[in-house]
Each structure stands twice: as C-alpha cells, then as structure tokens.
Simulated scan of single mutants.
Amino acid sequence: MREETPKIPQATSKRLPLYYRFLQNIANSGKKRVSSSELSEVMKIDAATIRRDFSHFGALGRKGYGYDVHYLVDFFRKTLDEDAETDVALIGVGSLGNAFLKYNFQKNHNTRIVVAFDPKASIDGTEMSGIPAFHPDTLQEKIKELKIEHVILTVPSRIAQDVTDQLVQAGVKGILNFAPVRLSVPETVRVHTIDLSVELQTLIYFIKNDVKQSHL
C-alpha cells in the first residue's frame, strides 16, 4: 500500500524558505549545530513553533544535541527543490514590476525571471533591464513556447482576471498576484495574493496594538 505524504500546514510551508535562508547564514558562519532556542533568537520565531514545524518532517534533531546545521541546509534545499532552476514570467512592468526585473531572483536562489509582458513592449520583443519583454498580445503563445508554469502578476485590478484567464489557458500552475483583487482560478492553479496596502494596514494595526498593550 502506498504511503501518503503527510500534509504540511500552510503556515509551516510559508516559513520553510525562511528556515533555509537563516540556516544557510548559520552554516556560512561555521557553526556545526544549532538549537531551536538559538534559531528562535535569530529568526524571532517562537522556539516551540520551530520544533513543531520541524516535527512535520520527522526526527530532524536529537534531544540534548539540537540540529545538525549542514544536514538541515541539505534537507531544506531538497524539500524546496532548490537544485532545480525555475523560470518565471513577469506580467506588467510598471513601477513594481520594474523593481522585480532589476532585482531578479537568481541572485539568491534558482528562481529567475526569464520573460516579461507589458503594453510598452513590441510584438517582436523589447529588452527591459536585460530581460526580453513582449506585448501582451503574445502572452499565451510565449508562455506555452517557454513552458512557463509560474508567473508574477503586477497588472491593474481591472484587467487582472482577464490576464489570469489567459494564463490558465496557457498552462500556468502558480500565480504570485500583486493586484488587489481576488482571482478566480481552477483548483489546479494556485494563487498567492500579496496586497501591499492590506499588509501596511496590518503592520500599523499591530504597532498600535502593541503600544496599547504596553500601557495596560
């Protein structure tokens, strides 16, 4: 009988890249082993949360010893599939999209923006920050041609759903959405929406709430 892979909570999954990044830094410092309390101190995440997150993947450490740093780095690299290169398309090269192009992700891991789409680009292609960019009229054709499955969406809200429909038809499996609108997609497509205004409001709320709590 086939053993089912345990379902990892979404909150834990979101923290995995953070664990990988901090553990890489710890490994680069020459440290051989680390405890959950030490990780908690540098990451500002409760030690109990770290131990609970790690427990979803089995016995990653030993009581009284802690965690082997190089083993964890290797484990999370494989878990996050960091050995495989992932090509990403950027849809919309406005202020935010242009910032993504200039940053690009390959500097930090194996995810890279390889193509962009924007109305300012030509049908035949225009170079933007060293990345080939094309007019949206070529969107589906190019996405299929390049076998792109992951995109970053930074378009105005009014056209976000129409663009998403085209991406779904082109075979895209994952969308990182920066348009402040809820997108409708099939169950086979995953959307992560980052609304910067909501994130800022949340930050302000927590800061004000922390101040109130400190005066109680």
Rank of each mutant, 00 (worst) to 15 (best):
N98P: 01
K32F: 13
T86M: 02
S36L: 09
E41C: 13
K78C: 13
E38N: 10
S35T: 15
L72V: 02
L96W: 04
A48R: 06
G94L: 08
R33A: 10
V34Q: 11
V34I: 14
L80H: 06
T49C: 04
A48Y: 04
I26G: 13
D74S: 15
V34G: 09
R77E: 15
K31Y: 11
K32S: 12
F54S: 08
L39S: 01
A27I: 00
V88K: 06
D46M: 01
S95I: 02
A27V: 00
H56N: 11
K44T: 03
L96C: 03
D74P: 09
R51G: 01
M43G: 10
N25L: 14
G97E: 01
K32Y: 09
S29C: 04
D74K: 15
Q24T: 03
K44D: 05
H56G: 04
K31D: 12
F76P: 12
N25Q: 12
N28I: 00
D53K: 01
F76N: 08
T86Y: 03
S95Y: 08
H70P: 00
G97P: 02
R52D: 08
G61Y: 10
K32I: 13
V34N: 09
D53F: 04
R77V: 15
Y71H: 15
G94W: 07
N98H: 07
K32E: 14
A89F: 05
Q24E: 12
G58Q: 13
S35D: 05
G92C: 06
V73F: 10
V34W: 09
G61R: 10
T79P: 01
E38K: 10
S40R: 02
I26V: 13
Q24W: 06
V93F: 03
D87I: 07
M43K: 08
G92Q: 03
D81R: 00
R62S: 10
D87M: 07
D81N: 00
F57G: 11
H56A: 02
L96K: 05
L60K: 04
A47G: 06
Y67N: 06
S36H: 02
S37V: 14
L60D: 06
F54R: 01
R52M: 04
V73R: 12
